[in-house]
């Protein structure tokens, strides 16, 4: 669910188009947009406080008796519905391996690569101090 929540809507749709077709589903709730209240902690580690809200899209569908759920930041209702359908389909042992390989694995890999790149860029801006002998 975390991988699907972070996927760009267009990327998700494109991967799904190339994957084995999903069984039909019906909408149970949504897709709908709303808010979640983001919270922080005083001092980073103290009591919780409300930072401000964030938009969120959510959806729940039924597919062959299974319920799939999706919650994702932003207002991409289409992506929320596709994610909920995928969540339902992934609960089916016969569908899971193909969908994992066609959709989840490439998304997870792209997200991992993007994080690693950000970490490498940050590492390149890390200051390496050197001490001048004359300063002693």
């Amino acid at each position: 669910m975390a991988t699907l929540a972070r996927a760009e809507g267009e990327t998700l749709a494109a991967l799904l188009a190339a994957a084995p077709a999903l069984p039909a589903w019906t909408r149970l709730r949504g897709p709908e947009a709303g808010l979640v209240m983001l919270r922080g902690r005083a001092g980073g580690d103290g009591a919780a406080f409300n930072l401000g809200e964030a938009t969120v899209a959510r959806c729940a569908v039924t597919m062959a008796g299974r319920i799939g759920h999706a919650w994702r930041l932003g207002r991409d209702l289409r992506a929320a519905e596709l994610s909920a359908a995928l969540d339902a389909a992934l609960q089916d042992e016969t569908l899971r391996p193909a969908l994992e390989a066609a959709v989840i694995a490439p998304l997870a890999e792209a997200q991992r690569a993007a994080r690693a790149r950000t970490a490498r860029r940050a590492a390149a801006t890390e200051v390496r101090f050197f001490t001048l002998a004359a300063m002693r």
């Binding site: 947009a33 808010l35 979640v36 983001l38 919270r39 922080g40 980073g44 919780a48 940050a122």
Partner: peptide, 19 residues
């Protein structure tokens, strides 16, 4: 927009650092 719920407090200690 309706408020669905409150998120868990952000864990800034586990932040993926840019700066």
């Amino acid at each position: 927009l309706p408020r669905f719920l409150a998120a868990e407090p952000l864990d800034t200690g586990a932040m993926r650092i840019r700066r």
